[in-house]
Simulated assay, not measured.
Amino acid sequence: MPANKSALSRYRIIDRCLRNNMHPFPDKDYIRNKCEMEIFGELSGKISISQIEKDFEAMRNDKGLGYYAPIKYHKVRKGYYYDEHNYSIEKLPLNPQEEDALKFASLTLYQYRNISIFEHFKEAIDKIYTRLSLSRQPGDPMVDQLVQFEKTLGSDGNDWLQPIYHAIANNHPISFEYDNIYKQEHKTFSLVPYLLKENRNKWYVIGWYEKHAAYLTFALDRMTNVILEPKIVVKRTDFNPESLFKNAVGIMGGSDHPIDLVIEVKEPISVLLEKHPMHHSQAITKRLKDGIQVSMQVIDSPELLSQLLSFGKHLTIIKPLELKQQFKETLQEMLAQN
């Protein structure tokens, strides 16, 4: 029996749930809630447990779908999983129904790509439409041989986008466990989330952490066991994303006073820097024989230092002297380790 678009959406969500290493062995209730949140944006009760059971059966045995998904139940963990390592319906060729649904969705998005609500997604929409215009079958080897799109490595933590968005929209705090890779700590936090922000294909949540009386940033791919707390809080009135990230290079915003950074950059990196500024405050203060001198007002952060290091031998830091010294010490440490 042909599957409708809603069923195809549920199959994809079920597939992601069964492959989610951050929440292994999901039960039917967890999967049902995930389907409702992604399809309807809320826990509406429109999808029943029996519907999930029927979806399992279709994914396992429906010849029209052709998934033959190895979905098994783990009696000890009391949840479901794929019996074949690395199995995913996303690795299978699309059937005609899925091709039609995908083409229809891409055409719809393409028609509205210039509307302000889709402004931040225009590049992604154009890429999807271009790919499907070349061939309706994403696995077409001819297209892969002749056209190579940039591939984004998958980022764990994207499953937390929907519940955190729900928490922000409805003024709920969240609690979660977090791995701080810099301090090598694993701690539990309770946060009032204010903003989801994407940076370099990774997602972050910015929120108020009462213990430190400050806004902190957390990477979603280092969060586990995210729980939406039932209480409703009154949001602070001093949160201003534009102000928070005004002087940031990357994701690490803050209220710290920015530094006046002056650097000299030689060609060919200077050409790239002029075309793709590091920061909106970047200004050319002097044109040199073999490059440019630029100034900007930015927060001193590990992200800033990392970007400056990427310029290599083409960079000279003029000021501040403290950053120049930090740059030298970092280079000396790198040399000592190699």
Rank of each mutant, 00 (worst) to 15 (best):
A3H: 12
N4S: 12
S6R: 06
I13C: 03
I14V: 13
I14T: 04
R16C: 09
L18S: 10
N21L: 08
F25C: 09
Y30T: 13
N33Y: 00
M37L: 15
S44Q: 02
Q51N: 05
K54L: 06
F56I: 12
E57F: 10
M59H: 04
D62R: 08
K63M: 04
Y67K: 08
Y68F: 15
A69C: 02
P70D: 10
D83C: 02
L107C: 09
T108Q: 10
L109T: 04
L109Y: 03
Q111M: 09
Q111N: 03
Q111G: 01
N114C: 04
I115H: 12
I117K: 07
H120L: 01
A124H: 08
L132H: 03
S135C: 14
P138R: 10
D144E: 11
D144T: 01
V147R: 00
T152I: 14
G154C: 02
L161G: 09
Q162W: 00
Y165N: 13
E177H: 10
E177L: 06
Y178S: 02
D179C: 09
N180K: 03
K183W: 00
H186V: 05
H186F: 11
H186M: 05
K187Q: 12
T188D: 07
F189L: 03
F189P: 03
P193I: 10
Y194T: 11
E198W: 03
R200Y: 11
W203Q: 10
W203M: 13
I206N: 07
A219H: 08
A219I: 11
V226G: 09
L228P: 00
L228W: 02
V233L: 10
V234G: 02
D238P: 05
F239G: 04
E242F: 02
L244I: 09
G250M: 08
I259K: 07
I269F: 06
S270I: 05
V271G: 01
V271W: 02
K275I: 00
M278C: 05
H280R: 09
Q282V: 06
I284S: 08
I284A: 07
T285Y: 02
K286Q: 15
R287S: 09
L288N: 14
Q293R: 15
S295K: 15
S295N: 13
D300C: 08
P302Q: 06
E303T: 01
L308C: 11
L309H: 13
S310Y: 07
P320S: 07
K324A: 15
K324D: 14
Q326G: 04
K328F: 00
T330R: 14
T330S: 09
A336T: 02
N338E: 12
